[in-house]
């Protein structure tokens, strides 16, 4: 058979459902590790600057209270840091997330670049080797920085080497979905730290801690440049939720997620993508139609919670559409016109 046009443009290569699932989760786990490192780092800063129960907030925003208190009496720096870094029994610890990222990456070795694998291999082995000495108070900030950098190295290698086909779209969808989720949790950490002690809102402690939140999301300087002297909490929340230019904002990530799913429908003819596109659009509309102040007045925590639930639903729908459980109804083989190259009904030549 003679190929006269770029086969990639006309005949999309099929992507195994399992690969799609693994790529999306690889991206999510790597983002989650990075964000956890950011959150631990910023909490450490909070506590140093006087927040009374900063460590408890991490457990709350991750909804891990039940599991945490089953094995611990109190949320001390030591117990929470251990729980979220080296505790292999805790599925939300960095070591468990790194393990999960690694298993997904292992499944993906046939499709990801060798550079991606080599870096993940070294990084996950490093995380697995961490012990009590590595998470002492004097070491923890440095460790968080190292983990953050390793995650960013992964992101960079992925950007530079991962072939841009369906798998990379699922990867990007995973990254943006996770970032959208994580920014709401990062905002919530502040909510939990200062409320319900109303007295704290607007005080100097408050402002320095909101600055720390911005810093932890690498948004402090951009915020200053754009918003200059306006350091009101509602402006900062507005920036984190609604900035169209800040790479970790909710709005930016919903926009990217929307474009990823649209790409699956448009370029890869994946019929299952259509109603998910609608779902993400709906979410964007709701965010667009409210100011940050309105969101705060109606209940910032409730809003964050609601977003997190919506994102979980979207993840579930993506799974149902693209990697349905064995036994569940699968789409019948596509019509020959869409995938002429791998159809048996083609005439012989």
């Amino acid at each position: 058979m003679t190929t006269t046009v770029d086969p990639i443009a006309t005949v999309p290569m099929p992507l195994l459902s399992r690969y799609a699932e693994c790529t999306m989760w690889l991206a999510r786990y790597m983002e989650r590790i990075e964000n956890l490192a950011r959150i631990i780092d910023v909490t450490e800063t909070f506590v140093r600057s006087g927040a009374s129960d900063g460590w408890r907030a991490i457990v709350q925003i991750n909804a891990d209270e039940e599991r945490f208190f089953a094995t611990h009496d109190a949320t001390t720096a030591r117990s929470v840091i251990t729980f979220y870094t080296i505790d292999t029994e805790n599925p939300t610890s960095i070591v468990s997330l790194a393990h999960a990222a690694r298993e997904n990456a292992r499944s993906l070795r046939p499709v990801i670049s060798t550079e991606m694998w080599a870096q993940l291999n070294i990084f996950t082995k490093f995380v697995r080797s961490l012990g009590r000495d590595d998470i002492r108070p004097s070491e923890i900030s440095q460790l968080c920085t190292r983990i953050k950098q390793d995650c960013q190295t992964h992101t960079g290698i992925t950007e530079g080497t991962f072939y841009r086909d369906q798998a990379s779209i699922f990867y990007n969808a995973g990254r943006h979905l996770e970032r959208a989720d994580q920014i709401t949790r990062l905002i919530d950490i502040k909510y939990h730290t200062l409320l319900p002690s109303e007295a704290g809102v607007g005080s100097e402690v408050d402002i320095s801690q909101w600055s720390a939140v911005l810093r932890s999301a690498a948004g402090y300087h951009a915020y200053r440049r754009v918003m200059s002297a306006d350091i009101r909490p509602s402006s900062i929340v507005g920036f984190l939720l609604k900035s169209e230019a800040f790479p970790r904002s909710l709005s930016t990530n919903l926009r990217h997620l929307h474009s990823n799913i649209t790409q699956l429908r448009r370029d890869y003819h994946l019929r299952g993508a259509s109603h998910i596109v609608g779902r993400v659009e709906h979410l964007r509309n709701i965010l667009d139609q409210q100011t940050a102040t309105e969101i705060i007045v109606r209940g910032l925590h409730e809003f964050n919670d609601w977003i997190q639930n919506e994102l979980q639903d979207i993840q579930r729908e993506i799974a149902n559409a693209f990697w349905p459980a064995p036994g569940a109804a699968v789409l019948a083989p596509e019509t020959p016109e869409l995938f002429p190259a791998s159809s048996q009904s083609q005439s012989q030549s």
């Binding site: 099929p14 992507l15 195994l16 459902s17 699956l264 003819h269 994946l270 064995p326 596509e334 048996q344």
Partner: peptide
Amino acid sequence: LVTENDRVYMRTTAGLRP
């Protein structure tokens, strides 16, 4: 992989492919 009518398919994001 799955078989249907004595043919073999793989599960992809676009459904079953031969």
